[in-house]
Design a binder for these strands. Structure first.
Lengths: 162, 162
DNA sequence: GATCCTATTTATAACTC
DNA sequence: TGAGTTATAAATAGGAT
């Protein structure tokens, strides 16, 4: 019965902390869904417990929202991002013409090129560390998005041009 | 003064809908932050308005959480490789040693390599014809599967953090 | 543990400035 | 527009089962 108001600080007692982790997550997810319905918006929640367990929710879907975020200019993955300290992304920013000389490749990019040339994707990926995997995963997402966009473009043209 | 309880359905009146969109987002973000503090967890929220405006929040950061999600086995990257009945394995199923000399690249592969080197994925993909798109899509699938497999491999080796 | 209960705290719909 | 105010609905801490 909520004997007293909550202090917003880490709950010391493990059992209580876990109960709160479970109960509040339910509340958070419900609020997120109500939010989308009421305001005709799209929202997603990503949660990782201290132990590393994953919980996620998204409307219409978590993957769609993550994709949308990744391709958004305000994300570090987005085309217009590329802040000084942020992780490097492909297509590093300019809508301008291609650079006169190739930009230096990251280690991950170098691995990919090598993998393609040797037709041995597996051997290249097999050595990646977690950070590189995340980078590669983000890059793959970008390719997927562009493939989808190109497909849409083709579809649109075929309707008009035959 | 909350004259009546909220019905969870799309708010018709535009002004009201937008007010709710703004106010509830504040509440959602606050709850998310409190949640992380109280239960010692990590959480992120991604929101897109109906008009396409982006709002995001993450603890410790949105990018970190998205990265963590992307590389998590339960994301789309992990799902497909997880099951025994999943798609067949990449790289032609051969456990054989790599070829002594590089195989000739397909036109698509050549495009990809060039794209990586120029950091201009978009321009490369933008010129693809449907057949090439299919090929690229297949390549992307292969990367996804190997990322997932590698992720699984890492997880198995390390006991992981606390 | 999960789920139900319920006294309180918290969030917020309508309103005002 | 956006930032309070306040009466009421919703969420929830601690208990009970």
């Amino acid at each position: 019965m909520v004997r007293r108001r909550v202090e917003i600080k880490a709950i010391e007692v493990k059992a209580k902390r876990h109960t709160t982790f479970t109960k509040r997550r339910q509340g958070l997810f419900k609020k997120t869904q109500d939010y989308c319905t009421l305001s005709d918006s799209q929202a997603a929640v990503i949660v990782f417990s201290a132990a590393g367990n994953f919980f996620g929710l998204g409307h219409p879907s978590l993957n769609l929202l993550v994709n949308r975020y990744i391709s958004h200019p305000k994300s570090v993955f987005g085309k217009e991002a590329a802040g000084a300290g942020g992780p490097r992304v492909l297509d590093g920013g300019g809508a301008e013409d291609g650079p006169a000389e190739p930009l230096p490749l990251t280690e991950t990019e170098r691995r990919i090129v090598e993998a393609i040339e040797r037709k041995r994707w597996d051997s290249a990926v097999g050595d990646l560390v977690p950070e590189e995997l995340s980078e590669l995963a983000a890059e793959v997402e970008k390719i997927k998005l562009m493939v989808a966009a190109r497909k849409k473009e083709i579809k649109g043209k075929s309707k008009v041009d035959g």
